[in-house]
Design a protein around this nucleic acid. Sequence first.
DNA 1: CGGGTTCCTTGACTTGAATCAAATAAATAC
DNA 2: GTATTTATTTGATTCAAGTCAAGGAACCCG
Lengths: 238, 238
Amino acid sequence: MSTLGDLKTFAITNTLRSCKLFTGLPQTDLANIAAVTVVKSLEKGDYLFHEGDAASGFYVIQRGAVNIHRVTATGKEQVIHVFRTGDSFAEVALAAPTGYPADARALENSQVLLVQKDGILALLKRQPELALRMLGSMSSHLRVLVGQIEDLTVKDVETRLANWLVKRCPNPQSDAPVKIELTTNKRVLAAELGTVSETFSRTLAKFRGLKLIAVKGKTLTVLSPAKLRALLKRNLGE
Amino acid sequence: MSTLGDLKTFAITNTLRSCKLFTGLPQTDLANIAAVTVVKSLEKGDYLFHEGDAASGFYVIQRGAVNIHRVTATGKEQVIHVFRTGDSFAEVALAAPTGYPADARALENSQVLLVQKDGILALLKRQPELALRMLGSMSSHLRVLVGQIEDLTVKDVETRLANWLVKRCPNPQSDAPVKIELTTNKRVLAAELGTVSETFSRTLAKFRGLKLIAVKGKTLTVLSPAKLRALLKRNLGE
DNA sequence: CGGGTTCCTTGACTTGAATCAAATAAATAC
DNA sequence: GTATTTATTTGATTCAAGTCAAGGAACCCG
């Protein structure tokens, strides 16, 4: 049982509340979840878990970024998704078979909450509302993966990059330049887009040549979101 | 309310029981689910739903096969998964946002059960055990998708086909030939493997040349599962 | 500042697989 | 059975993108 008012519990419930999975839950529920939760600190590059590891629970990111990926026999890394502050992931842990299906590594110094499997399962049995939320969360992961399968197989790198950039423009119809600060190095971003750094670099160069973007170090500037969006539509629509 | 002993309900509960999602549930639970379930018959080629359609529930296949896919702007179809008798799919319907994320089409004449969203949600609220099963089911779909992302991006067609064939050999270490009957035409199978019929055909031809398989109409014979497995390992391991 | 990483970019080359085109083969209808 | 459509195979061509190689740029650290 958690002691109400306990300082650590309080800090954890605050983080939990900021996670979409748990927003709006009554304080008592949050405290119950906090009671089965432990905080983990990760240095950049640390592995949180590996494919096949016994799944001890699922995670909520308090601060930082975690890269979920698979490593092939040839050592290549296929990025499945990058989760950031407030995201939850690895809900798959709650169901048998209990091994994680992929690797997870911190892309920067991060702090995550591990919501322990046994504890949360017991809670879920008592609180169907929570179970439905977990269903919702997993369903949104499924949607992302379905989208990604299409992305990776159907679109070329140029289209994927255009899409990625447009998604980051607050108002893609406008002509006002938008600055985008890269939070990772370009090799990691290339991997997120399902390609390698060379191809990524060439595609950036192409866009630069088309005066669609400007690149200065880790700052990308979309010169005209509207034009970029037009290119994207052209690529998709034909 | 369903009348217990009602013939239709009885038929439905029998199907439900054969679905992994529901096996072992007590008869009363099954009857409750049956009460919110409707049977749908599909002709080969019929669409069950399209991407973006309001999701009225999830499905259990009683007989036949359903192809889940996305259609791109260029009209190309990317197969996400093929579900068969006893499988459940589109559990994603239970969570908002309510549109289906892909298209579903019958690959052959089929009969499916639609477990209606509203009804099952009400049940889930009362029966957390059921909610946990749904979590399990979605989590296994997640695992499949994660595997597929790796498949599609990392492996070449030869490796994907070898993998597909080996999976269908009861004992892949053995040297005893295995017959595999195709349940669809080769274009559909090619799409499942993330390629087109021409490339699929060439890859079959290659395997035939290597005496790994024999092809006669819709019957593939793996001449030596062990040899095929060796090729697969070679492709993956280097 | 100078040497050592690590990261990024560019060029040259290679290749797996899609596309286009055309020739069978198989299935279905009339 | 013959016609017609649909599937499958094969050949030739093209292309996106990965790999290999080499030069810069940026960053770190003493």
